[in-house]
Design a protein around this nucleic acid. Structure first.
Lengths: 250, 250
DNA sequence: CGTGGGGTTGATTCTTATCAATTCGGGTGG
DNA sequence: CCACCCGAATTGATAAGAATCAACCCCACG
């Protein structure tokens, strides 16, 4: 079983060198993780959303249910991500947050983030960057759903997850059934299955139980029009001046 | 002709009371607006993207062209918005930015934003909020494109624009042809036309040239499943503590 | 007057959804 | 070990939705 681990510290640390004060603030956000079973709904759309969650192990997702039963998966969260960030400006949760696997997540009050921003202004910039990266992912999903036919759409999604998992292995194991996949890709579960067959027939992937082997990476990339650039976000602009400033403060 | 005006100051001012220093920093971002004709491409995907633009009048959009000619409109920008924010972490533009009407926009170097964040940390929080609101809009667009059939999708889009325009009038005038609309909604131009007829046949709207009259607001809302909550973003959490801090600094 | 872009409409084709039946694999209890 | 059940994946048949292709209208504009 692939149990992923991670913390927001390493996630954010990719963008800039953090000073001890900043690290302490971030660590505090995930100091008391709780365990939740797969399928648990951490937060339902419409409820007053007082808290966010740092995800330290396992997978989660954000989902929106429509009146007529249709549903759309909005995000897939991996360890090290924060659940709820985009809801900062709203008093009611705009979507469900659901555990896809057993997870460890640490709830913290939304207002805590405000305090963090005040105590370490540079972190506000870094969180800005995180939102910007998430936006880029959403934008690619819009392109994917809006303009790519089913098989390419699925292929693109597989590649996105492959890159996000940061594993050298060509095996991608997604802890979700084809029905969830369908809701993430804006299609029907049956058609996800058909699209898998298509990718197999073209010898781009092989599947075995829950696992997907990327058999022809180059072909899959070409087929789906995938370009990983949108996942590779940098923050050269943040680290330049501020660290000095923080150093003085410490 | 509907010529919209606006500045980022009022846009951001909705979220919190700004102190003079903050206002000055923001005003500086749009102090030297330039005029661009409709159709002008401010920035093409792939080029090194050194600058963002504050949009002070007219409409613009972000577009992505795919290899095979398909295209997807990613954002519609109204006066007071900043073009490019989400690209903060990238060195190359991830999409085209194109003027939909004649516009006035003020280019400023991306690094300027960093300076702003350093000089007025609270603005970093507010820009964080802006990104969060934009994310909410993207998320609704994903739901719209992923899970709603064409006519509902169009209806939802019309209502979103109606709310964003902040006009009491039930007339919505979109400065874009049905082909652009199609690219925004992930469908074909012909089908946009048919969807308009459907909405007309149901007596939900009337159209005349470029203008759309919402004839049955309640019906349109019901039909499309529109809920404006995602556009109504608040920042009660920002203004609480920081202004004091800024007051001291001044 | 022509001309051309945008909008509408119809005919056709393609894609995807929906419904239904079958298979597969993993548990569970006898 | 086997019978059974269940959820998930696959496959086929059919229907609906949307794209595409093509014709046509309308109107602004030279």
């Amino acid at each position: 079983m692939t149990m992923l681990e991670g913390c927001i510290l390493t996630q954010i640390g990719q963008f800039a060198e953090l000073v001890p004060e900043e690290k302490a603030l971030l660590l505090d956000l995930e100091k008391d993780p709780k365990r939740y079973a797969a399928e648990t709904c951490l937060c339902a759309a419409g409820e007053e959303a007082e808290r966010f969650y740092t995800l330290s192990s396992g997978w989660a997702c954000a989902v929106r249910d429509l009146a007529d039963g249709r549903r759309q998966v909005l995000d897939i969260f991996l360890p090290g991500q924060i659940l709820g960030l985009r809801e900062m400006g709203f008093n009611e949760a705009r979507s469900d947050f659901v555990a896809l696997t057993d997870i460890e997540a640490c709830p913290f009050p939304r207002t805590r983030l405000t305090e963090v921003f005040e105590q370490a202004p540079r972190l506000a910039s870094l969180f800005f960057l995180i939102l910007a990266r998430e936006q880029s992912m959403l934008v690619e999903r819009i392109i994917n759903i809006g303009r790519r036919p089913a098989a390419e759409r699925l292929a693109h999604f597989i590649l996105e997850m492959k890159v996000r998992l940061q594993r050298p292995s060509h095996e991608v194991r997604l802890p979700m059934n084809q029905s969830v996949l369908a809701d993430a890709l804006g299609m029907s579960a049956v058609h996800v299955s058909r699209s898998f067959s298509q990718l197999r027939k073209r010898d781009l992937i092989r599947t075995d139980g829950g696992a997907i082997w990327i058999h022809d990476m180059e072909g899959l990339v070409r087929f789906s029009g995938f370009n990983r650039a949108y996942l590779d976000c940098e923050a050269n602009w943040v680290s330049r001046t501020d660290p000095v400033c923080m150093g003085e403060a410490s």
